[in-house]
Amino acid sequence: MSAIAPATWRDSFSVSLTVGAYGIAFGAAGVAAGFSVFQSCLLSLLTFSGASQFAIVGVIGAGGSALSGITTASLLGIRNGLYGLRMAPLLHVKGLRRVVAAQITIDESTGVALSQEERGEAAMRQGFWLTGFGVYIFWNIFTLVGALGAQAMGDPAAWGLDAAVPAAFLGLVWPRLKKNSDRILAASAALLSLALTPILPAGIPIISTAILAVIFGLRQR
């Protein structure tokens, strides 16, 4: 393994720490939704994909079934599979190393790896591993902190802190709204889910918006 460029270290570490800190919001959201501290931590250790984790606790916390929660979370996890597709030829790992690489294949590890392209393939690999492990460590530590904090407070909804969860989702979607069509899709999905809420079981109105994603995706050139 060649020496790691200071810039690669810096990119990986800063992303790991800032993203890992979101773990506080997730730990708190998990406990607020009725998950135990242990279950919230397990989600961060095993699922390890922020949007999917927020989705499962959000849907179940709002009274949705396990199936609709798992479906929403899994639809959000598909992109990790596509990241894996992009990272596999770069990493070419087998066996246990492939298992570990798969587990840390997320937005951030893939993003930092791709951002190192000018520095060569070795730097891309280093960026992937450093960021993947870094986010994993910080995300799990901060999940525990957030979950214990929320448990100590009791019910965050009773304190009126429950706007934190939709704000977290908004913070996750905001950077993805780059084009006008993205913003139209976001607004349509929000309206469709609200329109369906009174008539369908909790969780289904959210999954239904995947249809809009397919329509908008097919219309792109």
């Binding site: 949007a51 927020f54 989705a55 959000g58 709002a62 929403t72 639809l75 959000l76 598909i78 992109r79 596509l82 706007a163 969860v165 939709p166 989702f169 908004l170 996750l172 979607v173 993805r176 709204l177 993205d182 899709l185 976001a186 607004a187 349509s188 999905a189 929000a190 309206l191 469709l192 889910s193 609200l194 809420t197 109105p205 959210i206 999954i207 239904s208 918006t209 995947a210 809009l212 994603a213 397919v214 908008f216 995706g217 097919l218 792109q220």
Partner: peptide
């Protein structure tokens, strides 16, 4: 293309449902 749109749709729906219902 569809894969890029899925998080936008689902996360926006989650924002709406968690805020207004």
């Amino acid at each position: 293309a569809i894969n890029l749109q899925i998080p936008i749709a689902l996360l926006s729906a989650l924002v709406a449902v968690q805020t207004f219902t």
